[in-house]
Design a protein around this nucleic acid. Structure first.
Length: 414
RNA sequence: GGAGAGUUGGCUGAGUGGUCGAAAGCGCCUCCCUGCUAAGGAGGUAUAUGGGUUUACUGUAUCGAGGGUUCGAAUCCCUCACUCUCCGCCA
């Protein structure tokens, strides 16, 4: 949620910023609702104050064994006024809340403007793609089996076996160890989240179609960002704890509604995939610094795996709902001869913190913290990248050195 | 799955219809005293949101959540969630 004071103080600038990310903000509707809200809230509170006073009076008289019919009458009419007023108030509050929950975060000043991903800006790159027109991971190994997964569950799932399954496990463990080196505390988390958690991080109510829902209040998590950030929901944190640095490996579940026909082959786009996530919760003045460091933490992993990648800054039109600024890491996929997203590192500023009520105390006042998150990395895509970039186009996948301690083998013979 | 007990401020915990945003203790902050330390004394210390000369001050809401009874609910009733104990089952 964005700060309503910003809207009140400078609605024009807010709506312009939102327009940059293709969000059409209805100022008139907001302002009308807000005026209504204020009117009914003041009125309701006045009536509540009246009720308090009259009830007290009534009680005093009763104690003395007296009755005052005029007073009773007054109370009756006050009550019906109050009922009307407060139900109007709660209606308008609901409308306002819906309005506010629908608005994405404001892009940071530094974010390049643009309508869509074509305006994203390449910041830097690492390594040189050595393999062009390489075989794709399904052609390389039968230890990635989508047919069996289709039998078990359906499309967009995979069964990994043997050395490939081990390689993925090695990748995950390696990533977690790297995160720990960078000061992140490892967590094991529920992979189910409730409505409140998902609302706090911004997946709900707007993007319910992207989630797998189990029952009314249970959803499979689309990313560990949800449980990690929600660990501190409704809390006032000690400023000395900052920055909080958290990591976890979880399975992630996405319905991929609306991506029919996109990336249907292979592991690129799955309903279920493994990911190591980094989350930071920090002081508002430190969050952009933190974004740079978090991004570099994710990059370290690609570097050590010796995978060619590029860092891209998303333009305003391509930003995720909760993000004020985002860097995507894109890894070279030889079979597609293109860079594909393997990590997305975002500063969500106070957007999630406001929804989740993650606060800290400074100078006696309670303030909202800033939250950041980034993948380090998506293991399924990392697996593809390792396989395809290290395949000799004949019979052998070489295991990157840093993984060999984890895999206990140095190559995979096909 | 069965039976029972709970859920109150940063923590412990009192409060069974009004004077309760809530005793007391702990913790924390400020000050005083004591030449260090320990001990002692005085005061302060929830959150959200509104009004205001944006300072002082002040309205309202919040005692797990939602509904109900009542002039009035932390307190009574109903529903739900969660926690704990015992039994059963189980990786």
């Amino acid at each position: 949620m964005i700060d309503t004071n910003l809207i009140k103080e400078n609605p024009k600038s807010v709506s312009e910023k939102l327009a940059l990310r293709n969000y059409n903000f209805n100022i008139e509707l907001f302002e009308a609702s807000e005026t209504e809200r204020k009117k009914y809230q003041t009125e309701t509170e006045d009536l509540q104050a009246q009720r308090k006073a009259l009830s007290k009076e009534f009680g005093m008289l009763k104690k003395e064994g007296k009755d005052d019919p005029a007073l009773s009458k007054k109370i009756d009419s006050m009550k019906s006024d109050l009922d009307k007023c407060s139900s109007k108030l709660s209606n308008i509050q609901t409308t306002l809340k819906e309005l506010l929950l629908d608005i994405p975060n404001l892009p940071d000043e530094s974010v390049p403007t643009g309508k869509n991903e074509e305006s994203n800006v390449k910041i830097r790159n690492f390594g040189e793609p050595t393999i062009l027109k390489g075989k794709d991971h399904l052609e390389i190994t039968s230890m990635i089996d989508t047919d069996s997964a289709n039998l078990l569950a359906g499309s967009r799932f995979a069964v990994l076996s043997g050395e490939i399954a081990k390689l993925q496990r090695a990748l995950i463990t390696f990533m977690l160890d790297k995160a720990e080196e960078h000061g992140y505390t490892e967590h094991y988390l529920p992979m189910v989240a409730n409505t409140e958690s998902l609302t706090s991080t911004g997946q709900l109510p707007k993007f319910s179609d992207d989630l797998f829902q189990l029952t009314d209040d249970y959803y499979l998590i689309p990313t560990a960002e949800v449980p990690l950030t929600n660990l501190y929901r409704d809390q006032i944190l000690n400023i000395n704890q900052f920055p909080l640095k958290l990591t976890a490996h979880t399975s992630c579940f996405r319905s991929e509604a609306g991506s029919y026909g996109k990336d249907t082959k292979g592991l690129i786009r799955q309903h279920q995939f493994e990911k190591v996530e980094l989350v930071q919760i920090c002081h508002p003045e430190k969050s952009y610094e933190a974004l740079e460091s978090l991004t570099s933490h994710a990059e370290t992993i690609l570097k050590e795996l010796n995978l060619p990648y590029q860092v891209v800054e998303l333009c305003t039109g391509d930003l995720g709902f909760a993000a004020a600024k985002t860097y995507d890491l894109e890894v070279w996929i030889p079979s597609q001869e293109t860079f594909r997203e393997i990590s997305s590192c975002s500063n969500c500023t106070d957007f999630q913190a406001r929804r989740a009520k993650i606060r800290f105390k400074e100078d006696g006042a309670s303030k909202l913290a800033h939250t950041l998150n980034g993948s380090a990395l998506a293991a399924g895509r990392a697996l593809i990248a390792v396989i395809e970039n290290n395949f000799d186009q004949n019979s052998t996948i070489k295991i990157p050195e840093v993984l060999q301690d984890y895999t206990k083998f140095t190559s995979i013979k096909i």
